[in-house]
Design a protein around this nucleic acid. Structure first.
Length: 264
DNA sequence: GTTGAGCGTT
């Protein structure tokens, strides 16, 4: 989202994106814009925010019109204390216009970049590198992984539940609640229709027990057992307020074991 | 009221 009220990137003709790291989670684009605008023509200031909380992710993108100005801002603002935090400014690498950045970067800022890197007094953290060493992790996959892991680490109770309920696929875990929510909702809508055509019990059985005779397990109705536990329902609907209440309510009586049994 | 070593959107 652009700070100028435009949707998406305003005009990326000759713009150069700077990545501003280590900013406070409370720092907004309005705070960064005047700072960066002093050193050059700022085309856009964008701060990625967490989709769930809507909070800043701790870094921002400042788009400059000219590369030399951007370079100047990097030198001037890198290490500047903003909102009590020392920010770090560098050229963005993985942006949509990364090629442009690369071109401008190697154009005439090679030596300067080196000096900037050297001047940085930040202490390195080789511990992480050691752990990830040997893996074929991509440049951005690592970041996402770390983010999601940290996010979930805060509520490990939830994380455990998800792990149990699902197959613990890393990809699923990355998406987190969104996927879960979407699935549950979609299932809610598709349930009434799909429930009619196939028999729920039988259809799920063939995988594990090909023989229909064996499918008659001691438990007359597996679905009922799940309902008795109640935990299953909780996992399927972790956020009752997120799912439409009427949809679930409507579904609930329809899925009544008694009726379902009678129906078949 | 909160994290942190990171790369982006109608």
């Amino acid at each position: 989202m652009s700070h100028f009220g435009r949707s998406g990137p305003p005009d990326i003709r000759e713009t150069y994106s700077l990545l501003v790291l280590n900013i406070t989670f409370r720092t907004t684009a309005d705070d960064l814009f005047p700072l960066f605008d002093k050193y050059g023509k700022v085309v856009d200031v964008f701060i990625p925010r967490d989709r769930r909380t809507g909070d800043s992710r701790g870094f921002a993108f400042v788009r400059y019109k000219y590369q030399d100005e951007a370079q100047k801002a990097v030198e001037k603002l890198d290490g500047r204390v903003v909102d009590g935090r020392e920010i770090m400014v560098q050229f963005a690498k993985y942006g949509p216009n990364a090629e442009r950045i690369h071109k401008g970067r190697v154009s005439e800022s090679t030596s300067k970049l080196k000096s900037r890197s050297r001047s940085r007094s930040r202490s390195p953290r080789p511990r992480y590198r050691d752990e990830y060493k040997g893996k074929d992790y991509g440049s951005r996959s690592r970041s996402r992984d770390k983010y999601s892991r940290d996010r979930h680490h805060r509520s490990e109770r939830e994380h455990r539940y998800r792990s149990r309920s699902r197959s613990a696929s890393p990809d699923n875990r990355k998406r987190g609640r969104y996927d879960d929510e979407r699935r549950s909702r979609s299932r809610s809508y598709g349930s009434p229709k799909s429930r009619r055509s196939p028999s729920p019990r039988r259809s799920s059985s063939p995988c594990r027990s090909p023989s229909p005779r064996m499918s008659t397990s001691p438990r007359t109705t597996p679905s009922r057992v799940e309902n008795v536990h109640g935990r299953n329902r909780k996992e399927r609907f972790p956020t009752p307020k997120d799912v439409s209440p009427h949809g679930r309510r409507d579904d609930s009586p329809s899925l009544s074991p008694r009726k379902s049994d009678a129906d078949e």
